[in-house]
């Protein structure tokens, strides 16, 4: 037995360190796609990154083709997409965040009551629904009765996608507060509503804020549900009952029209940078908050 100990030990150690390097190797390879994607977008998109990107609407296929033939850069920008995204997102935030926070407070307060448990499971269920399925449901609910694609329909779809994330982050940041906080507030004679609104929610603010930011960044790049709810538009439109465009929808349109393909990269780059920026921002807030 002693012999088998020593003879295999070196082999076992070698195997162990080989595995370690394997893990490190595979982990490093996992980093590559993100940088490849960023590199590709920057390399191809920086040339189109100019002021007109933010001030002009997307060109028609014809305009782009003419520019292409004469060797000029594709004219126009993605103003209609940017304004559309802003419109749809603001509406979605308006729907999802108040409802999500209120529900989150309910869950944090009621903990294990049957209704709370049901709502918690349903929120998990909502989170798992593929975005395209939410899109078609909203099509049936909103687009069909209004007999028009609309910014409103798109924002309902995005709001449904944001809801579970807002609910979860509200509940969790409230649960992390010490119970003494609530008791102290009540002991000072505050009403239940005052204690929740004036003490608990402000104390949990950074958690709520981070959760909401992450939810926004998660739905910002969504394309599939918008495809079947807001359709797209060639002009800037602030009317929520009419079709609008969105940055992600424009990428889809450019992708489908070879004449406009040149605009894909700058648009994607802009969208990705904003999303990654919000993500990093949310993470750093969360980190600073945890240290305190």
């Amino acid at each position: 037995m002693k012999k088998s100990f020593t003879s295999t030990t070196r082999f076992r150690l070698a195997k162990s360190s080989f595995f370690f390097y394997l893990v490190c190797g595979f982990s490093l390879v996992t980093l590559i796609p993100l940088f490849l994607i960023l590199w590709e977008l920057i390399r191809k998109g920086y040339a189109q990154f100019n002021p007109s990107l933010f001030t002009e609407v997307a060109p028609t296929s014809m305009e782009a083709m003419l520019a292409h033939i004469s060797g000029a850069p594709i004219p126009g920008g993605i103003l209609n997409g940017i304004t559309g995204t802003i419109l749809i997102l603001s509406l979605a935030i308006l729907f999802a965040i108040p409802l999500g926070i209120t529900t989150g407070v309910y869950l944090a307060e009621k903990q294990d009551k049957p209704v709370a448990r049901l709502v918690r499971s349903l929120s998990d269920l909502l989170q798992g629904i593929p975005s395209i399925v939410i899109g078609v449901i909203v099509y049936i609910w909103v687009v069909k009765p209004m007999s028009s694609y609309s910014a409103l329909a798109g924002s309902v779809a995005l709001a449904i996608m944001m809801l579970p994330m807002v609910i979860r982050s509200t509940e969790e940041s409230l649960k992390m507060l010490p119970t003494s906080l609530k008791e102290a507030g009540l002991a000072l004679g505050g009403s239940y509503a005052t204690v929740v609104l004036r003490i608990l929610l402000p104390s949990a603010f950074s958690g709520l804020f981070t959760g909401s930011l992450l939810a926004i960044s998660r739905v910002m790049g969504e394309t599939a549900p918008l495809l079947v709810t807001v359709l797209g538009a060639t002009t800037v439109n602030w009317d929520i009952t009419r079709p609008v465009s969105a940055a992600s929808l424009l990428i889809w349109e450019f992708y489908n029209d070879p004449n406009l393909a040149g605009l894909i990269w700058s648009t994607s780059l802009l969208l990705l940078l904003i999303i990654l920026g919000i993500n990093l921002c949310a993470k750093s807030i969360a980190k600073r908050w945890k240290i305190q």
Partner: peptide, 8 residues
């Protein structure tokens, strides 16, 4: 010695 042997 090898740490694994020490531990055994």
């Amino acid at each position: 010695m090898n740490p694994m042997k020490v531990r055994r």
